[in-house]
Design a protein around this nucleic acid. Structure first.
Lengths: 330, 330
DNA sequence: ATTCTCTGCGAGAGCGCTCTCTCACCCGGT
DNA sequence: ACCGGGTGAGAGAGCGCTCTCGCAGAGAAT
C-alpha cells in the first residue's frame, strides 16, 4: 500500500536514483534507451514524486498563496467580482503548473496562521486580494521575504507591486455619461474608505463633478447589495431631488435600484443609476444596468504573471483601462 | 537571510534538536524551565518550522484539496452558491488549522495534474464539488487512497461519502406551494441532467405533480441566468398557457423572470416563479424571489468534519432539510 | 599509443524535521 | 547502602528527494 519511491523505480530499472531523478525532471544528459527503461518502470509502478521531499531540497513548493484579507469576513467575498478573480487566478496558475492555496483569514489568529504558513515556506509567492488600509498582513508577509503582489492598488504602509484597473477613469466616464444625459444632481455610493478601489472611484466622481461646479453628495457602503440599498435610502433623505447615482459596485447599484423602487422612484425615469464592475447580474436586472466594465481577467492574469516572472526590486504598477457599458438604467 | 532551523534554536537554547522539537510540538514531558528557554530562543530567532521537512517524516501536510470539477469551466463556478461553499469550507478548515488548496481543473490535462498532485501526497484529503456523472476524477482520486468526500450526492460510478441538502423535498415543497397558490400549469427549469442536484430536484417536481394527475413540462438549463432565460423562452413556446415555473436554481429563476418580463408576462400576476438556493440576490430582484433555502453552511461544515474526523469504511450520507422561503414572486 | 577532452552514470552527502531508543539521574522502598 | 522504577533529555537513524562530484569509457588530438 506504500507509494513507490525513487529507490524502487531505480531498482526496477536497474539504474541509480540519480538517473531516475534526471529522467523524471527531464534532464537532457541521459541516454534515450535508459530513459525509456526508466519511464517504463515509472509507469509500471505508478510512481509519483513525493512533493515534500522534493521541496525540502529544492526550497520551492509549486504553490502560490491567494490571500483574501477581509475583516468582516462575509462581506466582500460574496461579490461575483471576487469569484471571478479567484477563478481566473486559479486557471492561470494551473496553466503555469502551480497550485493555488486559498487563505481567507477571518480573525487576527487566522492572520497569524497565514503569516506563519507563508513564513514556513509553504508557498513560493503570495497574491493579495482586497487590501484594507489598516491591514497589517501585507507588511508582515513582505517581511518574510516571499514575493508578494497585490491585486489592486494597496493603501497600506506596505507597498507591494500591483496591478489594477483604472478606477479613477472609470468613475470619471460614469459621471460624464450621467452629465451628458442631462442629469443635474448626481450622488454617489462609495465603498469602504480604507480600500483603494473605493477611494479612486470616489476621487474620479468628485473630480469630474467639481470640474463642472456641481456639488458632490456621497454615502458609504461596503460593496454589498444591502449596503447599497441603505446608502440609497440615506441619499434620498439627504437630497430627495437627486436624479442620478453612481454606485462604486454593481452589487451596490442593484441595492440602490431596489431601494429606489421601494421609495417609488423609477429608474431611469426619476433617477439614473450607474454601477461598476459589469458582473453578469448587471445584464439581468430590471432595468439592465449601465456600468463600468473593468477587465477582471486581464488584471488577474497580469498579477499571476508578475509573480511568476519573478520581479526584481519594485516593478511599475500595471493599470488597465475601463470601459463604460451603457444599458437601460441611465 | 536564511531561515533558522531547529538546529539553530537548539544551539541557542543549549539543548538538543529533539527537545526543541518537543517544545514546538507541545509534548508534555519537558521541564518547564527548559521549555521557557527554548521558547525564548524560538522567539528571538523567529523560528518557523519548515513544513516540507515536517511532512516528509510525518506523511501529513495539513492541506485539504478543494476540487471543483466543472467541464465548461466558467459556468457553475460563477454561482454565488459556489463561492459560499468555498468560503465556508475555507473557514471551517482554518478553524481546524488546515489549509485549503483550490483546484479547478479546466481541461483533461488539468485533471491529470490534480490527480498527480493528490497522489503525490500534497494533500491529506479531498473535497469534491460539483460532480458530473461522467467525471472520471472522483474514481481516480479515490484510487489514490487519499480520503475523499463529496459535496452533494455523487452520480459517478465512484461513490465517496457525501453530505447534501434534501433536494427532492425542497422541490416538492416548491411545487406544493405553487399548487396551493392555485396554479394549474406548472413548468420546471432543471439543471444539467448529469448532476444529482438537478436530477433530485426534477424528481421532486415530477413526483409531486404526478401525484395530482398533472402533466409535467420541463426545459433544461445549466444553472446560469442565461440558460434560465433561454429555458423560459422555450417553455413559453411549448405552452404559452403556463402559469408557474419552478427553477432549479435562483440564478436560473432570475433569468426566467428576465425572459418573462421581456415576453410581456407579469410576475407573479401571469406567471409565478420559484427558485432554489436562496442566494442573497433573491431578496433584491423585482419581485423578490420565492425560493427553497438550502443550508449551504451546514452542508459545507459537515463535509469538512466528515473529512477531518477520518471516517472508517463508508459512512452514511448526511442529508439536511431545506426550507421554502415565500416572497413576492408567487 | 598516449594524453586530453567530453559525455553520462553512480555514489553519497545532505535538506530540516520527527521519533525511537538509550541513558543519566532522582526518588522511594527495602 | 542497594536497587527498581520512572522521568526527562540526547543521540542518531531515517523520511524521499536533488545535486555536486568523481569516475569510467568513448572519441579526438597529438
Amino acid at each position: 500500500m506504500k507509494r513507490p519511491t525513487l529507490e524502487a523505480v531505480a531498482a526496477r530499472a536497474g539504474v541509480s536514483r540519480a538517473t531516475v531523478s534526471r529522467v523524471v525532471n527531464g534532464s537532457a544528459t541521459v541516454n534515450p534507451e535508459i530513459r525509456a527503461t526508466v519511464q517504463r518502470a515509472v509507469e509500471e509502478l505508478g510512481y509519483v514524486p513525493n512533493s515534500a521531499a522534493r521541496s525540502l531540497v529544492t526550497q520551492r513548493t509549486g504553490s502560490i498563496g491567494l490571500v483574501v484579507s477581509e475583516p468582516p469576513a462575509r462581506v466582500f467575498s460574496d461579490d461575483p467580482f471576487f469569484s471571478q478573480v479567484i477563478r481566473t487566478v486559479s486557471h492561470e496558475l494551473e496553466a503555469a503548473d502551480r497550485q493555488a492555496v486559498l487563505m481567507m483569514p477571518s480573525s487576527p489568529a487566522g492572520q497569524t496562521r497565514v503569516e506563519r504558513y507563508v513564513a514556513g515556506g509553504h508557498v513560493d509567492g503570495v497574491i493579495l486580494l482586497s487590501l484594507h488600509g489598516s491591514d497589517p498582513l501585507p507588511a508582515a508577509l513582505m517581511r518574510t521575504g516571499v514575493p508578494v503582489v497585490s491585486h489592486g492598488r494597496p493603501v497600506s504602509t506596505a507597498r507591494p507591486p500591483y496591478c489594477d484597473a483604472d478606477n479613477v477613469g472609470g468613475a470619471r466616464a460614469a459621471v460624464e455619461h450621467l452629465l451628458a444625459r442631462g442629469r443635474r444632481r448626481i450622488a454617489t455610493i462609495s465603498g469602504p474608505l480604507d480600500m483603494s478601489a473605493s477611494l479612486d472611484r470616489l476621487a474620479g466622481y468628485r473630480d469630474t463633478l467639481s470640474g463642472t461646479g456641481r456639488r458632490s453628495l456621497a454615502a458609504m457602503g461596503d460593496f454589498t447589495r444591502e449596503s447599497g440599498a441603505a446608502a440609497m435610502r440615506q441619499l434620498l433623505e439627504d437630497d430627495p431631488g437627486l436624479d442620478a447615482v453612481f454606485a462604486a459596485s454593481d452589487l451596490m447599484a442593484i441595492g440602490a435600484v431596489y431601494a429606489l423602487r421601494k421609495a417609488g422612484r423609477r429608474v431611469p425615469g426619476d433617477v439614473a443609476v450607474v454601477g461598476f464592475d459589469d458582473i453578469d447580474a448587471a445584464r439581468f436586472t430590471d432595468p439592465p444596468l449601465t456600468t463600468v466594465r473593468q477587465p477582471i481577467d486581464d488584471v488577474a492574469r497580469t498579477i499571476v504573471q508578475m509573480l511568476l516572472t519573478g520581479f526584481e526590486g519594485h516593478p511599475a504598477p500595471v493599470i488597465f483601462p475601463t470601459e463604460l457599458v451603457v444599458r437601460d438604467s441611465t
